[in-house]
């Protein structure tokens, strides 16, 4: 790369070297296939690393480390060779991870999205409540950014948990912290929406549709993820605003 000297022709390359390279590479690929990456073995989710450790390990750039920790936590759900059901996870530990990531990256939305729409959507009311409370507890730190997740939490509380009191508590929190934020009007009226006699699917469409229409979802992946939740086509290809078909 650093030299621009002319090279000798390929005819000067010993055929034996080419043959050895081809043979060794072929053998290597065969060996690779004999030892695939996938090796089913579920492991418990341990506690998250401390903020100080992350700070040191990231060489003073904890934000980058926080982004990686998102993937580490996500990767734990999908360990090599098996998909660990969310319901079998230690949710107290998951909450600690999400909290630590949020501490390191307060502007990041990933932990709240994961809490409200991944870990909070399992058929286990106790675990769902843990996630909803996490979203609720962390909402007040940054209402302008985090309102979509608490709005969804209110929806889940009303329709999945059938706990109108909890849903109204979340909606009231939203309303109380709406002043001085960019929170759209419909969020402030969540209480009304929750009190209306709507079925779950209709309410979800209203909630998600309003969120997508608000233009506050700028990340194409998040847009697709949310859209797939509306039409029930989780995993199907959809096109986000600004993306070419």
């Amino acid at each position: 790369m650093a030299r621009s000297e002319p090279q000798r022709p390929w005819s000067r390359v010993p055929l034996a070297a080419v043959g050895i390279l081809a043979g060794a590479l072929t053998l290597h690929v065969l060996l690779h296939r004999a030892h695939p990456f996938v090796s089913p073995a579920a492991a418990d989710l341990g506690p998250p690393p401390s903020a100080g450790l992350v700070q040191a390990a990231s060489l003073g750039d904890p934000l980058a480390a926080a982004k990686l920790l998102n993937l580490v936590l996500q990767a734990h759900d999908n360990q090599p060779g098996l998909s660990v059901p969310f319901a079998s996870l230690d949710y107290a530990m998951v909450t600690r991870w999400l909290g630590r990531i949020l501490d390191l990256d307060p502007a990041g939305a990933y932990p709240l999205l994961a809490a409200s729409r991944l870990y909070g959507e399992i058929p286990d009311a106790a675990r769902v409540r843990v996630m909803l409370e996490f979203v609720h507890d962390r909402f007040t730190e940054n209402p302008s950014v985090r309102w979509p997740y608490l709005a969804h939490a209110a929806h889940v509380a009303r329709h999945r948990l059938s706990d109108p009191l909890l849903a109204r508590r979340y909606a009231a929190t939203l309303r109380r912290h709406a002043a001085g934020t960019t929170m759209p009007a419909w969020v402030r009226q969540m209480e009304v929406l929750l009190l209306a006699d709507m079925d779950e699917a209709a309410a979800a469409r209203v909630l998600l549709g309003a969120l997508l229409d608000s233009g506050q979802v700028n990340d194409p992946a998040e847009y697709r993820f949310l859209l797939s939740r509306i039409d029930g086509s989780f995993g199907r290809s959809t096109t986000a605003p600004g993306e070419a078909k």
Binding site: Q7, P9, V13, A17
Partner: peptide, 9 residues
């Protein structure tokens, strides 16, 4: 490496 070295002038 042998292939690359054999092409070096």
């Amino acid at each position: 490496a042998a292939i690359d070295l054999s092409r070096k002038s």
